[in-house]
Simulated scan of single mutants.
Amino acid sequence: MTHFLPIRHFEDTRKAPGQQSRVEDTRSAAKAFRHAMLAGPKAHYFQSFDLVTVPYPTRYGLRNAFSRERFVEFLHLRNRMFVVQFVTPEGIKTLLVSPSDHERGIETPFFRRLADHTPAALTKFIVKRHATVPEVLERIGLRPEDVDYITYDHLHTQDVRRWLGSDEEDAYFPNAKLLVHRQEWESAQDLNPYQADWYCPSGVAGVPASRVHCFEGSIQLGDGVALVHTPGHTEGNHSIVVHTDEGLWVTSENGVSVDAYAPLLSTAAGVADYARAVGTEVIINGNTLENAVDQYISMVQEKTIAGPSARDPRFPNLFPSSEMTPFWAFPGTRPAFYVGQAHHGTLHRAGAAAAGAVEGDRRSTAGQG
């Protein structure tokens, strides 16, 4: 049976009557949690892999802040998967973060309408498919049966049936469980029309209950890896925190760019001016707006946990799971800071020789896309 340690730091931090008081209470708790994570061990392995780059409306990704919205309707989002391994009392476990089945995700109603109204030639120009999840795993030498867990910060656009199995198909990952906040799982079963526009139809239908582990609050999975409840974008949204050689990487889609967490430094058109005028310290990714107040708090929580980037300490150590990516056809959307890639630690392959199979030397590399 799966047992994860509860994280208590954030209990009751959003109970103050005043909204800014909730921000500061959460910020204080995030500082304490960051200290605790950094005092503990690091994850065994962490690496990012590009899956697909797609257009996304600027009016959502840079909510109210982008000054060229009338002329530049879209920005480019590069969706990534992260392969994470961590030590537990039961041995090394393998977690896939955001293993998006983008071949099926196109059926999400919003993106289905966008695809249906976009000429095929233009689609080939603005959509770039980098790799599928199976292709990534084959490339690094992981077998489907090696995967213990999969997780997504929330279930927008996700279809997990291929990975976990359903009434109509066998599971590609025979041993994996979905780690999902209970509120996110319950919401996905009972959506209102505005939310349903962003969830893949039947994306979780028929998935066996035995393949789903719902958790409450925030949890520690093992050495150097935690799932922290960060509601707002959806009620059950959570962020993935991984302790690496570059500090604490924090991953979610609350913000579509590191710029969104340091908007006064942003080079995206109008964002710094907007942040200065409004006095905001973050720019939310606001396609569904389930609770913008909580999302604001959650982004402050995330950047406080992350701390300063080792690559440029002016920016927090955020790694958006879908990152705003420079594209010449969408002028004004180039971010001031672009994470690109990260690779830390050694990949453990189950059943390898006694010496242990590794993927390259222990290293920390970074690339710009």
Rank of each mutant, 00 (worst) to 15 (best):
A353D: 11
T118N: 06
V83T: 11
Q195S: 05
T244F: 11
V212N: 06
G224F: 07
D153T: 14
P99E: 08
H348M: 09
S309Q: 00
W249M: 09
S48I: 14
Q301E: 10
L248Q: 02
T26A: 14
L289D: 09
T304C: 02
T88C: 10
G141N: 12
P134S: 02
Y60M: 10
E253F: 09
A131C: 06
P231L: 01
S100P: 00
S67M: 08
G203K: 08
Y60P: 01
K124V: 04
T157G: 00
D25F: 06
L137Q: 07
E24Q: 11
S309L: 02
A36R: 15
T118V: 03
T244D: 03
S257C: 04
R334I: 08
G356M: 12
P263Q: 15
M324W: 01
V97M: 06
P231H: 07
R34Q: 13
V228D: 08
H348T: 07
A352D: 15
D12A: 14
D25G: 04
H348R: 11
A352Q: 06
P313R: 03
A268S: 02
G141L: 07
Y172M: 15
S257I: 06
D167G: 09
A115Q: 00
A272F: 10
A196I: 01
E359V: 07
G351H: 07
R129L: 12
I92C: 05
W249H: 05
Y261Q: 06
L227Q: 03
T132Q: 02
T365K: 04
Q341V: 08
A32H: 12
T26C: 12
G286Q: 09
Q183C: 04
P326H: 15
V258P: 01
T280R: 12
L95T: 07
